[in-house]
Amino acid sequence: ASVAVIAAGTQGNIFATSALRSMRFLQILRMVRMDRRGGTWKLLGSVVYAHSKELITAWYIGFLVLIFASFLVYLAEKDANSDFSSYADSLWWGTITLTTIGYGDKTPHTWLGRVLAAGFALLGISFFALPAGILGSGFALKVQEQHRQKHFEKRRMPAANLIQAAWRLYSTDMSRAYLTATWYYYDSILPSFRELALLFEHVQRARNGGLRPLEVRRAPVPDGAPSRYPPVATCHRPGSTSFCPGESSRMGIKDRIRMGSSQRRTGPSKQHLAPPTMPTSPSSEQVGEATSPTKVQKSWSFNDRTRFRASLRLKPRTSAEDAPSEEVAEEKSYQCELTVDDIMPAVKTVIRSIRILKFLVAKRKFKETLRPYDVKDVIEQYSAGHLDMLGRIKSLQTRVDQIVGRGPGDRKAREKGDKGPSDAEVVDEISMMGRVVKVEKQVQSIEHKLDLLLGFYSRCLRSGTSASLGAVQVPLFDPDITSDYHSPVDHEDISVSAQTLSISRSVSTNMD
Rank of each mutant, 00 (worst) to 15 (best):
I351T: 03
P222T: 08
R317C: 07
A310T: 03
V496F: 04
E326A: 10
P222S: 09
V350F: 03
S463Y: 12
F193L: 13
Y178N: 01
M251R: 13
D484G: 10
K363N: 05
H386L: 15
S395N: 03
S299T: 12
L273Q: 02
C336R: 09
A320S: 10
S487C: 12
P268S: 12
V216E: 10
K416R: 10
D478Y: 09
I430F: 07
T509A: 06
S284T: 10
D322H: 12
L461Q: 04
S502C: 15
S483P: 12
R355K: 03
R462C: 08
S242T: 10
L211Q: 02
S353C: 00
P479A: 15
E447D: 06
V439G: 13
G210A: 15
I189T: 02
I351S: 09
S483A: 14
G267D: 14
G224A: 12
M432L: 10
V350L: 01
G210R: 11
A233V: 11
D223N: 05
I403L: 14
G260D: 14
G267S: 04
L338H: 04
A206S: 00
T172A: 08
V347L: 06
I343N: 08
F456I: 07
E326V: 03
K441E: 03
R309L: 03
R217L: 03
S240C: 11
H386Y: 06
L211P: 11
L196M: 10
V489L: 13
G246A: 09
M251L: 02
L452P: 03
T182S: 05
H272P: 00
D478V: 13
V427A: 03
L357F: 00
S292I: 02
A384E: 10
L198H: 01
S301I: 14
R462P: 11
G470D: 11
D418V: 11
P282Q: 04
G455R: 13
D341E: 11
D377G: 04
K348E: 06
E285K: 06
L273M: 14
M259T: 04
A290G: 10
K416M: 05
S466L: 13
S422F: 12
V221I: 12
Y186H: 04
I189V: 08
R237L: 07
V340E: 06
D255A: 12
S283N: 12
P275R: 08
R307G: 11
H386N: 14
D341A: 01
R264P: 06
L179M: 03
K254I: 15
M278T: 02
S175T: 07
L390R: 14
G434V: 12
M259L: 06
N510K: 06
R313T: 12
T241S: 00
P479H: 11
G417V: 09
V507F: 13
V489G: 13
C336Y: 04
V437I: 01
P475T: 14
S301R: 14
T266M: 07
E327V: 11
S175I: 03
S395I: 05
G409E: 10
Y334C: 08
T349K: 08
D187A: 11
N303T: 12
A165G: 05
Y178F: 09
S445P: 01
T280N: 02
G470A: 14
V340A: 01
Y457H: 01
I356T: 00
R205Q: 04
K348Q: 06
M259K: 15
A177P: 08
C244R: 15
L314P: 10
S311Y: 02
F243L: 09
Q442K: 04
Q397H: 06
P222A: 14
Y485H: 08
P324L: 13
G464C: 05
R217W: 13
I356L: 03
E330Q: 10
E415Q: 13
S171T: 06
R307S: 08
L314I: 15
E425D: 14
D401Y: 13
T306N: 09
S175G: 04
L396M: 02
L196P: 14
E440D: 00
D322V: 14
W300L: 14
Q335K: 01
E429A: 01
H486Q: 10
D304E: 13
G288V: 15
P268H: 08
C460G: 12
A467P: 12
L196V: 05
R218Q: 06
E425Q: 05
Y178S: 08
S248R: 10
D341N: 11
T398P: 08
Y229D: 10
D418G: 06
R205L: 02
P222L: 05
L476V: 15
A290V: 06
G239D: 04
T182P: 13
P230S: 05
G267A: 15
K270E: 08
V378D: 04
F456V: 08
T349A: 12
L179R: 11
S281C: 03
F200V: 11
S487N: 10
S508T: 14
Y178C: 11
K416T: 05
F308V: 11
H486R: 03
L387V: 06
D478G: 09
A346G: 09
V426E: 12
S431N: 08
I403M: 13
E380V: 03
K295M: 04
S319A: 13
I481S: 14
V203E: 06
I481L: 11
S483C: 12
R364K: 02
G260S: 01
K365T: 01
D484V: 14
R205W: 05
H236L: 10
A471G: 09
L450Q: 10
M433V: 03
R256P: 07
H448L: 01
W183G: 14
M432R: 12
D341Y: 09
A181D: 11
I189S: 07
D480Y: 15
L357I: 05
D341V: 01
Y373F: 08
H202D: 12
D490V: 09
S468I: 15
R217G: 06
V507L: 09
P245L: 03
Y382F: 05
T318I: 11
I446S: 06
F456S: 11
D451A: 04
S292T: 10
A424V: 09
V232G: 02
I494V: 15
D512A: 07
D342G: 02
H486L: 07
K449T: 09
D493E: 13
V361G: 01
R406G: 08
G209A: 14
V443E: 06
E380Q: 03
D512N: 11
K295E: 07
D223A: 03
A206G: 10
I189M: 10
Q442E: 03
D490E: 13
W300C: 05
P324R: 12
L199S: 14
E429G: 05
P475A: 13
G405R: 06
H236Q: 10
E326D: 14
S508N: 10
R265Q: 01
A320D: 06
P220A: 02
A413T: 11
S333T: 11
Y186N: 05
T500R: 09
V287E: 03
A290D: 01
Q286L: 12
Q297E: 08
H486N: 06
S353P: 02
S188I: 05
D187E: 03
Q473R: 10
S383L: 12
T339P: 12
A219P: 12
R364G: 07
K438N: 05
F302S: 15
L214V: 08
K438E: 04
A197S: 09
R459L: 13
R258H: 02
K363I: 01
A320G: 15
R371L: 02
V404M: 07
P293H: 12
G407R: 11
A323P: 06
T180P: 11
Y382D: 04
L196R: 11
P275T: 06
R205P: 02
V472M: 10
V328G: 05
D304Y: 13
E415K: 13
M344T: 05
R205G: 07
F359L: 03
S504C: 09
G409R: 02
T291P: 11
P475S: 13
G417C: 04
S249N: 03
V350A: 01
L273R: 15
E492Q: 06
P475L: 06
R194I: 14
L198F: 06
D187H: 03
S262A: 05
T241A: 03
G288A: 15
E195D: 13
I379F: 04
A233S: 11
Q444P: 03
C336S: 08
E368A: 15
H236P: 13
K449Q: 01
C460Y: 14
Q381P: 05
G420E: 06
Y170S: 11
F302I: 14
Y457S: 06
S445T: 04
C235W: 08
V472A: 09
M511V: 15
P324A: 13
R212P: 06
R237P: 11
L169V: 05
F477V: 14
E326Q: 15
D493Y: 07
E285Q: 02
G210C: 02
D223Y: 03
